[in-house]
Computed example of a mutant assay.
Amino acid sequence: MSRWLQSATLVAIILLAGAVSPAKAQWGNCPPGYKSAAGACVRSCPGGYEDRGSYCAYRNEGN
């Protein structure tokens, strides 16, 4: 593996780890203004999730 590719890979891993770590949620352990959705702290529920106050519940619309 070339030295440039190793460096680029290392930078990508560091950036991804930094982006994921602060948003990582434990159940009910999000800061004020955030809610838990699929293991992450978010300000608003993503598509397919229902807002239930402090957390977002997945809506199964397949049935």
Rank of each mutant, 00 (worst) to 15 (best):
S36D: 13
A12E: 01
Q26M: 11
C41F: 01
A8G: 04
L5Q: 10
S54A: 13
A19D: 02
M1S: 07
I13V: 11
C41N: 00
V11T: 07
A37C: 14
T9K: 07
A40W: 07
G48I: 02
G48T: 00
V20A: 14
G53C: 03
A17P: 01
C30K: 06
L15I: 08
P32Y: 06
S36Q: 14
G18R: 03
W27N: 12
N63W: 13
L16R: 03
A8D: 00
V42S: 04
G39H: 06
S36P: 03
A37E: 05
G53V: 06
A25P: 02
S7N: 08
S44D: 12
D51K: 00
Y34M: 15
K24H: 09
P32R: 06
G48S: 03
V42P: 00
N63I: 11
S54K: 13
S21K: 13
P31S: 12
Q6R: 14
A12V: 06
A8P: 04
G48C: 06
V20L: 15
S7K: 11
K35N: 03
P46A: 05
Y49L: 01
L5H: 09
Y55T: 08
G48V: 02
A57T: 12
Q26W: 09
C56F: 05
S7P: 03
G28C: 10
A25T: 04
C30M: 10
Y49K: 00
P46F: 02
Y58L: 15
S54H: 12
G28T: 07
T9A: 13
G62C: 11
V42K: 04
G39W: 08
A38S: 13
S7T: 12
A37T: 06
Q6H: 11
W4P: 04
Q26D: 14
K24F: 08
L10T: 06
S7A: 15
R52A: 07
C45S: 01
S2A: 12
R59E: 10
D51Y: 01
G18M: 08
A8C: 14
D51V: 01
Y34N: 06
R43E: 09
M1R: 10
S2R: 12
D51Q: 01
R59P: 01
A38T: 06
K35H: 05
Y34G: 04
S21T: 13
A8I: 11
I13S: 04
G53K: 02
V11W: 05
C41H: 04
N29M: 14
G28L: 12
G39I: 09
A25W: 05
L10P: 04
A12M: 09
E61K: 14
S44H: 12
I13K: 01
Q6F: 09
A17V: 11
R59F: 12
S2E: 13
V11D: 00
V42A: 00
L5R: 14
K24S: 11
L16N: 00
P31T: 09
R59W: 10
L10E: 05
S54C: 02
L10M: 09
R43C: 05
A37R: 00
R52S: 08
S44V: 10
L5I: 14
D51I: 01
Y55N: 04
E61W: 12
V42Q: 02
S36E: 15
S21E: 09
D51F: 03
A19G: 07
A8Q: 13
Q6P: 03
M1H: 07
A40K: 11
G18T: 05
W4H: 11
G28Q: 10
G53R: 00
Y58K: 15
I13T: 05
N60V: 13
P46L: 03
T9H: 04
Q6Y: 07
L15D: 03
R43T: 12
